[in-house]
Design a protein around this nucleic acid. Structure first.
Lengths: 249, 249
DNA sequence: TGAATCCAGAATGTGCACATTATTCTGCCA
DNA sequence: TGGCAGAATAATGTGCACATTCTGGATTCA
């Protein structure tokens, strides 16, 4: 305590108040890179390199990586680093199995209790998907296809359910994104979705559940057919156009 | 680079190799304190105090808190601190609603495909619960009651499902633990479990699902009746007997 | 007397400097 | 020429020293 207590060096220490925004930006950047298939399974995410590429400090990268690891997006090996996981077909099947359990129950419930507003939202969504198909807007259709399943959960008015299903959805699409990014699509097509909505609106619980089951089984089948391409990718290229912080921090 | 480069102070820096174990210990300690009802909803978990109590550095506490926050056990307010959440009855109902969707599907599947080994494990578990009731072993019954639901998931041979259900279970019991720690019990009693197992063994999917539904509804009903007691608690008392690291780090 | 303000104390957030550990490269030897 | 050992280099893990922000209480003024 009774030391010299010299003036600290303090070079460039300036923690602004907009801190959580930066954290989220880093997190989103890595997640987006994965979802866009820029990061091959087995890729090692080095903290210094990521910090350089994203223009943030290593601690920021570290925090984002920890979060992603815990969410199941990445795998961490102590004293080794953080890696992009190689999801096996079995794991993908398991995730889709859980989704089947949840989503068949969801459509069943929607058949039992469905307000006019909810029905309207369903019909509007199907119309949007049809429009996306007509204009051949692949990117938009990709987003809509995923949001359809989230919408079904939302209509149950259960926050926990929605959050859970959203996590399952992103995890189930991860393998697909990593495996075949050029074939950007979430579902086989909006046709299945339209049929499911029709069954729900007709209050046909049995048919709706069956359609949902077949739909998800079809997705698994489709994903199982793909193989991860063996072409590696540099980190700088992977994060090209995916900025976290414009100015250095 | 061309600076004086004096000898660094380095007082007591000794990062052992058993690091992840300490992290887990801190994490478990806080979680255990919550599960034992030692931490009332609204309690602020101060990092320095926790570090003192658990004999670990503040960074370790910080990491554990971050993880717990992300898992939904705690709530963090930026620049304010980390707090024990006050789960509303509505949220508890939502969690149980999700559990209902999953677990009715689980028992349905078990009725369809159930090996002899699985049937044996089910019967053994029911016997264990009955034994715990006979000897009036409350603590053991508490653990067994929770593990029953996890066991059902495990018998589906789906890792993802098991992990998910385990999370839901702990989260659904959290409110109960916080509200009424002295009434330590997971389920209304082993009687419901025995009936469910009987229906599964009889391959009666409809009855099994109905029994599970009623079982979970009963649990929600029971939890809704309780109110959180308004007696606060000091941090030192809360973590009495819940050690993270014996020796200072 | 009550409320607004300001100030001291503590708690949180974060960059940084190390120690430790893993990886790669290079030279040597079989 | 291929494999192996050791050193150099890079990456990860962690305590620490700050800056910033929040909180609680005392003081002052209407």
């Amino acid at each position: 305590m009774a030391q010299s207590h010299k003036k600290p060096p303090r070079k460039t220490l300036r923690p602004r108040k907009g801190d959580v925004a930066i954290d989220k930006a880093v997190y989103d950047a890595i997640r987006r890179a994965m979802l866009m298939g820029r990061l091959l399974p087995g890729t090692k995410l080095k903290e210094p390199a990521l910090g350089r590429v994203l223009n943030v400090s290593r601690e920021r990268v570290r925090k984002a990586l920890h979060r992603l690891v815990h969410e199941g997006w990445l795998e961490a090996v102590p004293n080794r680093g953080t890696f992009v996981p190689a999801l096996t077909i079995g794991e993908v099947r398991e995730i889709y199995d859980v989704r089947t359990m949840l989503e068949t129950a969801i459509v069943g419930r929607l058949c039992a209790e469905l307000g006019t507003a909810a029905a309207q939202r369903l019909k509007a969504h199907v119309a949007e998907e049809r429009q996306a198909v007509r204009t051949d807007d692949r990117v938009r259709l990709f987003g809509l296809s995923g949001e359809f399943h989230v919408l079904l959960a939302e209509l149950c008015q259960n926050e926990q359910l929605t959050k859970l299903l959203r996590g399952l959805l992103t995890r189930s699409t991860m393998h697909f994104s990593l495996a075949a990014p050029e074939r950007f699509q979430n579902c086989a097509g909006p046709h299945d979705h339209a049929d499911i909505v029709k069954a729900i609106l007709a209050r046909d619980a049995k048919k709706a559940a069956k359609l949902m089951l077949d739909h998800l089984l079809g997705l698994v089948e489709m994903q199982s057919a793909w193989q991860p391409p063996p072409s590696p990718m540099r980190l700088e290229e992977a994060f090209r156009g995916i900025a976290a912080a414009k100015r250095p921090l």
